[in-house]
Amino acid sequence: MSAERRPLSPHLQIYKPQLTSVLSISHRVTGVGLAAGTLLLTWWLLAAASGPEAFATAQGFLGSWFGYLILFGFSYALMYHLCNGVRHLFWDAGRGFELPTVYKSGWAVVIGSAALTVIAWAIALASA
């Protein structure tokens, strides 16, 4: 095998996925997804500023099953990126680097982001 075509480390097809690595790449994936999702925020604000018709179109789309699907993904990605972002801020402060702590905070992110998403949707569905 030529030097150029050798697998890089970590060799992703062979390397066993771990909580730490999965959460790490998920942070990037959700970050990029949320950046794209900001289009929705701008559209919604512009629609509100444009008038009742434009706003009704936006609300109609967001209230459709496809809109709900996007909003659910958006909200979960947002809560995930927020929780894992707080985990990163603790690391930036030099805390929580011990391996057992890294796994504990990792599971806290998984559970916390799911809980926050459920809470947000409970509020939304109770209000709608």
């Binding site: 947002l78 927020l82 972002g85 947000a120 509020i123 939304a124 569905l125």
Partner: peptide
């Protein structure tokens, strides 16, 4: 990091607010 820190409360406030106003009219 600074924007991340600011976004923690701002995002939570926004999500809870728009969830509470779900289905609002113009």
């Amino acid at each position: 990091r600074l924007t991340a820190l600011a976004l923690v409360p701002l995002t939570l406030w926004f999500v809870v607010s728009v969830a509470g106003l779900a289905g609002m009219d113009h």
